[in-house]
Design a protein around this nucleic acid. Structure first.
Lengths: 261, 261
DNA sequence: TCCCTCATTTTGGTATGACCAAACTTAGAA
DNA sequence: TTCTAAGTTTGGTCATACCAAAATGAGGGA
C-alpha cells in the first residue's frame, strides 16, 4: 500500500543548477533532446535494417523499457510516435505491428492532416485539380509510350467497367480500377500510392454522390474515349478526353455539394 | 513519503469481466477506443475551427488534463500525436505551438518516412523519376498556357540563375528557385509543397555533388532552352529540354554515387 | 488425436504522484 | 527605466499501481 500526501507537485524545489547540461548528449539534434526520440530512432533503425521484420510485433513495452533503460512513459511515447509516422501499426489493445514503410504508408500516415486541409471547398478543389493535372500527364504518357501488356490491362479494366454499368457500386469500383491502371503504367510505385491517396481522400465526396446506370453509362463512354485515344496513339485526344471526363465529374460534385467555384 | 513494495505489477487481479464494455463510449470508432484519440480529435477540431489560432501556444498540460478529465499521461500522448501529425510544433521544453496545417506541413510530417524509403537507390530513382514526370507536365502546361506575369517571373529567375553561375552555392539556390517558379504556375498550393518535398528529400544527394562554374554553365543553358521553348509556346520542345536537363542531372548523380541503374 | 472451453498470464491503457531543470514572470536593485 | 535575481510555472521523466482485453496454456469432450 502507498500512503502519500494528496497534493499535486506544484511545490518547486530549489536545489538545481548544479550539474546542468549533463543530461542529453543523446539526440545530437540541437533542439530535440527528448529521450523518446532516441528510442524512436533506434527502433526505426531496426525496422530499416530488417532486424525487426515487416509484420512482426514490436517487443512488449515492458521489455523495451528494460532494453533502453527508460520508463514506460517514454517507451509509450516512442511507440506512439512510430505509430503516427506509420512505421508501426498499432490497433488499440494489440501488439503494435512493424510496418516497413512504403509509399502507401506515407500517404496513409498523412491522411489525417490532408483531411483537415480538405475541410474547406478550396482544399478539395486544389486536390482534384492536381489529380487532373497528374492524370492528364499519365494518359499522355500512355498514348505515347504504352506497351501492349499495359494496353491489355487497360482494355480489361474497361471491359469490366462496361459490365458493371448496371451496378453502381461495382461501377464505382471498376472506375477506380480503370484509373488505377493508368497510375501503374509508369512502373513507379509512387504513382499507385498517389492514386490511393486521391481515391481515399476524395471518397467522402464521391461516395455521397447519387449514382445511376445513366451516369455510369456516361462515365463509361468517357473511359472508352480515353482508351481509344490511347490506342490511337493520340496524346492530345487522350488529354482532352481525360480532361473532359474529370471536369464533368467535378461539375457533378460541385453541383451536388453546392460548392462555390 | 511513500512506502511501497518494490515489486512490479505482474500480479494479476482476477475480479474482472463484471462491468465490461462500460469504459469507452468515447471514440465511436470501432477499433480505436483510446482516450488520447478523443483528445487529439477535440484539439484538432479547435485548431480547424480557429478557436486555437495558428501560432498560439497550446494550453498547459496540467490545464488540459483538468479540462478533459484525463491523466497527464494521456494528455501528453495526445500532444505527441498532434505533434507527429504536424498540427502542433513542439520544441523540447517550450509550449507546443499550434500550427494550422498546410500542404507543406503534410510534406514535412512525412519527411522522415520518406527518407527511410530513400535508403536504397531504387527509392531515390523512383522519386526522381516522379519528379521528372511532374516537371515535364509543368513545362508543357507552361508552354501552353503561361500568362505574361508568370513568364516574367520565370525570366527573372533565369536571369538570377545566370548571374549566379560563378558562385556554385548561389547557383544551387537560384536553380531551385527557377524550378520553383514552374511549380507555382498552376496556382495550386499543392505543387509548391511537392517541390519543397523534392528539393529537401533529394538534397542529401544533390548537395554532396561536386559543383563548378562549368557545370553551372551547362545547367544554366538547359534552363534557358526550357525557358525559350516556353516563350515559343512549344510544349514538345519544352518537354524535351526539361527531360534532357533532368536526365543529365540524374546521370551526374548516378555516376557520383555509383548507383546501379 | 484434435478441437473447444476456461482459467491464467501477459500486456496495453490509464491514473497518481513526485522530482528536475528549463522557461517564464515579476519584483526589486542599479 | 533597465537589468537582474528570485520565485513560479510548466514540460520531461520516472516509478508504481490497477484494470481489462489479448494471448496462452491446461484440461475436458467429441
Amino acid at each position: 500500500m502507498c500512503i502519500t500526501t494528496l497534493g499535486r507537485d506544484f511545490g518547486p524545489i530549489k536545489l538545481s543548477n548544479a550539474l546542468k547540461g549533463a543530461q542529453a548528449v543523446k539526440t545530437g539534434s540541437d533542439n530535440h533532446p527528448r529521450a523518446a526520440d532516441v528510442i524512436v530512432a533506434a527502433i526505426a533503425a531496426r525496422i530499416a535494417s530488417g532486424e525487426l521484420p515487416d509484420k512482426h510485433p514490436l517487443p512488449a513495452e515492458r521489455d523495451l523499457m528494460q532494453e533502453f533503460g527508460a520508463s514506460r512513459t517514454v517507451i509509450r511515447e516512442a511507440i506512439s510516435a512510430l505509430s503516427n509516422r506509420g512505421l508501426v501499426e498499432s490497433r488499440p489493445r494489440y501488439r503494435p505491428i512493424v510496418r516497413k514503410p512504403d509509399y502507401e504508408t506515407v500517404l496513409h500516415a498523412t491522411g489525417d492532416v490532408v483531411r483537415h486541409l480538405l475541410a474547406d471547398s478550396g482544399g478539395v478543389r486544389n486536390l482534384y485539380r492536381s489529380r487532373i493535372f497528374i492524370e492528364r500527364a499519365l494518359v499522355r504518357e500512355a498514348a505515347t509510350a504504352a506497351q501492349k501488356p499495359e494496353i491489355e490491362l487497360l482494355r480489361e479494366a474497361l471491359r469490366l467497367n462496361e459490365l458493371a454499368i448496371p451496378d453502381s457500386n461495382e461501377f464505382y469500383r471498376t472506375d477506380i480500377q480503370f484509373h488505377g491502371v493508368l497510375y501503374r503504367m509508369p512502373k513507379n510505385p509512387i504513382f499507385p500510392a498517389v492514386h490511393q491517396g486521391y481515391t481515399s481522400w476524395l471518397a467522402p465526396h464521391w461516395e455521397k454522390m447519387l449514382r445511376s446506370p445513366e451516369r455510369n453509362q456516361v462515365n463509361y463512354r468517357a473511359h472508352k474515349s480515353i482508351f481509344d485515344a490511347i490506342i490511337d496513339r493520340d496524346p492530345e485526344a487522350a488529354d482532352e478526353a481525360l480532361t473532359n471526363h474529370l471536369n464533368a465529374a467535378w461539375e457533378y460534385v460541385r453541383v451536388t455539394f453546392e460548392l462555390d467555384e
